[in-house]
Structures are given as C-alpha cells and as structure tokens.
Nucleic acid binder design. Structure first.
Lengths: 160, 160
DNA sequence: TATGAAAGACATCATGT
DNA sequence: ACATGATGTCTTTCATA
C-alpha cells in the first residue's frame, strides 16, 4: 500500500536527521538533480508520508527525571462507568505539562509518561496527583534512567 | 539557568507545530520584525535550546500495533554480570527496526517500545525475540491501544 | 539586543526532453 | 525521471541605534 523506493527512503532519512537541509544539499548528497528531489519531497508531503516538520528541544528544557506510570483501575459493576472514568483520567492527565504522553492500554488500564526536574519532584507528583485518584487497583512506576534508542524523544514531547 | 522570554517561547511553540514556517510568517504572526525573529532563532540554536529539526512520518509508515515491554532479569551472584547482560540486551534490541525505543529502568530492568503491523506479529515478535532471552525474571507486556497525548510520537520514532 | 535595508540563496513552477 | 530557466520569496548579513 505504501510504495517507497530507495530515493524516497534516502530523502526521508536525511530529512529525519536534519529537516532543514536544502533541496540542493539533498540533491548533491544523493547525486540526483534538484528538480527530482523537489518533486519527490512534494509527493511525500502530498501523500502524507511526511506528516509534519518539527523541532526537538534540547537538554536544557527536558525533564531530568522521567518515568512510565502504569495505572490500572478497579473494575466496577457497570462497565460503561469504567470507560468514562478512564477517559476522564486520561484527559485530566493530558492537560498537565509534566505529563509528556498518555496512552490507553487495556480495558481497565492506561499508561502515562511523566517528567520532572528531579526524582523527588517526580515522586511527589506521582504520589499527589496520580496515586490519590479514587478506585485504582494498581499503580506501577517504571523509572526511565537512560534512553538508549529514541534518546531525544523527550525533547520531541516536551512543551515550552 | 535557561532564560526564555515570551518571544522565545512563542517562537518555539510555532516551530514545534510547524518547523517550516518562514521567518517572515513567524514575524508577522508575532508582530515583530523579521530580523528580530531571525536573531532569536539563531540564538536558540546556538544555545542548544533548539536541538534539531526533523520530520514526523505519517500513518502509512507507523506500526499499527505498539506495546511497551518491561523486562526484568534474574539477579545473578556477580553484580557486574547483571550490568553487562542488561547492556547487551539493550544494544541487541536497539538494532531491530521494530524496536522504536529502549530505556534502562532499574538495576535489573529495562523497557522497550515495540511496534509491528498488527497484533499477531507483535506478539510473535515478543515471544520469539524477547521472551526467549535467557535468565529473565519477568516480562510484562503493556499494549498501547490509543495515544491521547503525544499522539504522533510513533511517527517521530519510526525509521524508514 | 533590536531593527531596517540590501544582497544572495532558495523554492517553486512551467516547459520541454 | 531529468534539465533548464524565470520568478518571487526567503534567509542572512551588516550597519546602526
């Protein structure tokens, strides 16, 4: 369904590294004419393969302590309530600036990626904002001490 | 330590949404001269606050089924071995294209974000590549069914 | 640090091979 | 897919406040 040839992939890889490369620079590196590179990029954008261009923020603005928080809620008698309650928690967490990402997991659980300046503040946040939520069955905190792959994902997620 | 004024933040927010906005467009939206906006962006880059420019890949290239895999290894007698073994696992996983991110957690655990076309392939991958690793104490799979905040993080992480 | 103006570089598009 | 050229826009630099 998604047809990409070597040139498309090469262009995407270069833009992923540095989206500010000029068409002429890309053309030179790949030994292709500028007009071709321009045409390909235009198509990649139109096809939605390039979704958007963005910046990654540097260390200075990234939280130093991050953790995944797995939240499982108590299963009520009425299942419809569970759905609404989980959605409510997710929306509530999403608003907070130190909640970098929120994802639904199973029927009765969700995960949040949280960040703070340091460990103490992070734990304080988890204790005072998450653990206090009513009718939780389980809260599992998975600290992330070192990012090996996807190392700058925090710089991508953090807001200013 | 990081001094950002309102103008800096406004510029960063705009670039985060769309890093291809021209200086003149940004200048117009913020009612500032182009040269000022140019100067600020230059400084933000020099200070490393803007780390880099990149693209987010669209739905077509994103894995449809993603999950966090929490991996805890058996603690051996010799602690030095634990360290080396965990590093080895992390490096091994990092090479794989459907492993989107890898992070160290505690002394004896790590987390991987894995993605595949569909659920079956994802489970197959986890079973055949992760669960088979020797001396694991616990493997916890947390499927991510819906990303509420940070929704395009997969498009940021995925490689071509 | 901020600004205005000027010069050069660039993307974009049309046309044709 | 590639080449070329024309056009308007953008970035970058610099002098000045």
């Amino acid at each position: 369904m998604v047809q990409l040839d070597d040139l498309d992939r090469a262009i995407l890889r270069l833009l992923k590294e540095d989206a500010r490369l000029t068409i002429s620079e890309i053309a030179e590196r790949l030994n292709r004419p500028e007009s071709t590179v321009h045409f390909r990029i235009k198509k990649l954008q139109e096809r939605g393969i390039i979704d958007r261009y963005t910046i990654v923020l540097g260390e200075a603005l990234r939280p130093k302590a991050v953790a995944l928080v797995y939240i499982q809620v108590e299963t009520p008698i009425i299942e419809d309530f569970l759905e609404k309650y989980i959605n409510h928690i997710m929306k509530t967490l999403s608003i907070l600036p130190n909640v970098l990402a929120v994802a639904r997991s199973t029927k009765d659980s969700l995960v949040a990626l949280v960040g703070e300046e340091n460990e103490e503040k992070l734990n304080k946040f988890i204790d005072e904002t998450i653990r206090v939520l009513p009718t939780l069955k389980r809260v599992e905190v998975i600290p992330l001490t070192e990012l090996v792959k996807g190392g700058d994902v925090i710089g991508f997620l953090v807001r200013v």
